[in-house]
Design a protein around this nucleic acid. Structure first.
Lengths: 254, 254
DNA sequence: TTGCTCCTCACGTCACGTGAGGTGGC
DNA sequence: TTGCTCCTCACGTCACGTGAGGTGGC
């Protein structure tokens, strides 16, 4: 018996399948364009007509997309000849990628909260002042001269993790009275350099400074000592610049 | 005394600043193009020349980018007149977005591992068979007729969470002997419908079925009963289709 | 002189969103 | 007849990566 109320090839419009699968018609057309899904047949007016098998294939794709699988990978998953046992492996690989992503985002989130709380992102000079006070190098009511603020900002910018990390690394030096008393006269001698300072004076000062400073070997992104003179050129005299070149040679011998 | 070895306006090339800030020259040019950073001065050959202040501004931007802040938001943060106290608030807001993202990714990752372990993403018929066996509705060595596999796949596709969720919702029904004994004769009566079945028979069957089925009100994406006949048209006769329409009217009264 | 850096377009990425402009179906 | 759906381009998104083709600096 032939049933006239039921079409022999029951078909849905693009909007109907899309709604059933929980996507937009545009998304479905995109999947056709990328050969993720075969184009279905068309009716007499050029409309796409979908059957139950098309819906099943689409939902499969939609679920893999919701799991974060990129389209090219889905293509390789569903093409015939694809190893059926590889799907669980690919899912596990995606899970591992997410593990790393979650670790990364968690670290970033924690750092965001820390920076919001301490406000150290934007006030290198203030951060430096607090550290100096904590080490008794600056009186509680003393402050850094205005002229030193750009230098503090530059120091902050040159270290990958900024001023707090600089102070962290310098903490040992600052907390050690012996190192502090050794550095103080060296700083004075550096400030006393002039254009006319003899090479011998500069060379021995560089040697003494290099002996006190911690090695930069383990820095993730060591400061490029070659560009330092270019940045500081208008604040240093010729003797001080020669000192920087000497120090660079000693700290980073090629 | 004029020092000839030190330039009055010490400047770095784009490659030098970029390396100091840990980005590529292209990234820096992109920041200029988006007005995130002002274009620096050029030398006689058209090369950009950067000073210490440019480096400091760049590093500020690079750090905010590393924290996940989008460029337009950074622009609003660093333009003059920007409320200084708003930066911590924006950082906290970013942290909250990351909280949600982390929750989302964690759920997806767990689901990936679950699907990889149970392999229920791809074998709706097998999943159905296992559930039927667990409820004693199918012998341990019996299997689903091949003809029912497409129906299982369709059922799986029509539920947003797939076959396991379908079985979960139907679990109460299957586990309840009273419901099972009520459904069995109803299924037989449905299968017995023909093109010539009178409306009265169909109407009362629809009423009895609707009384037994759980309400679809709380489904996140209720199955569109209007399209069901189009999907099943070639598997059902006219009487069964009239039943579907009746049932639809009872379960979802507009 | 060679190799490196710099310059400015301008297309590509990823998975669609969003009109633009036109036509078929109830 | 009106409103809804469908059709095919084709540009926009986001933050750059990557040549293409040409020139300056050590």
């Amino acid at each position: 018996v032939d049933t006239t109320s039921s079409d022999d090839a029951p078909r849905l419009s693009i909007g109907e399948v899309a709604r059933l699968a929980g996507v937009t018609p545009r998304t479905l057309r995109h999947y056709h364009a990328t050969c993720l899904l075969a184009e279905p047949s068309r009716d007499s007016s050029g409309y796409r007509r979908y059957g139950a098998a098309d819906l099943i294939a689409l939902v499969r794709v939609v679920r893999l997309r919701a799991l974060g699988m990129p389209i090219p990978q889905i293509v390789s998953c569903i093409q015939e000849g694809a190893d059926e046992t590889s799907l669980p492996m690919q899912l596990r690989a995606l899970a591992e990628e997410l593990d790393h992503e979650i670790v990364r985002l968690t670290a970033t989130r924690d750092r965001l909260r820390e920076l919001a709380a301490t406000q150290t992102l934007d006030r290198p000079a203030e951060t430096l002042v607090q550290a100096l006070r904590a080490h008794g190098l600056l009186g509680d009511h003393d402050t850094l001269p205005e002229a030193e603020h750009p230098a503090a900002a530059l120091l902050d910018a040159l270290h990958p993790q900024g001023m707090p990390a600089v102070l962290d690394q310098a903490g040992g030096l600052l907390a050690d009275p012996a190192a502090r008393s050794a550095l103080a006269p060296l700083l004075q001698r550096f400030q006393g350099l002039t254009d006319a300072s003899p090479d011998a004076v500069i060379g021995s000062l560089a040697g003494e400074v290099a002996a006190v400073l911690p090695r930069p070997e383990h820095a993730s992104r060591p400061v490029d000592l070659a560009v330092m003179p270019k940045l500081l050129g208008d604040r240093l005299n010729a003797g001080q610049l020669r000192f920087m070149r000497q120090l660079r040679g000693l700290l980073d011998p090629r």
